[in-house]
Amino acid sequence: MIEIILCIVIVLSAILALIQKDLFKAAILTGISGASVAVLFQVLLAPDVALTQAIVEGAIIPIFIALAVKKTQRSDG
């Protein structure tokens, strides 16, 4: 059951990230999607991949995007 909920969270947060006007929120939603994928990797019997994914896609990439947004502009358009 947990994997179905996770899949819905992943797809929803991916879509929400792309229709968001505020790019900071988009960055945070990318992180949510990445972290859910990390939990899904744990369900799929790959704990080592889950650890890497949680750090890289769950934390580092949102921070990179947020930094880039801070240096450029916050609103889309």
Binding site: L18, A26, A27, S33, D76
Partner: peptide, 9 residues
């Protein structure tokens, strides 16, 4: 930036 987010997806 959204293009890049899409690429990460």
């Amino acid at each position: 930036i959204k293009k890049i987010i899409g690429i990460s997806f």
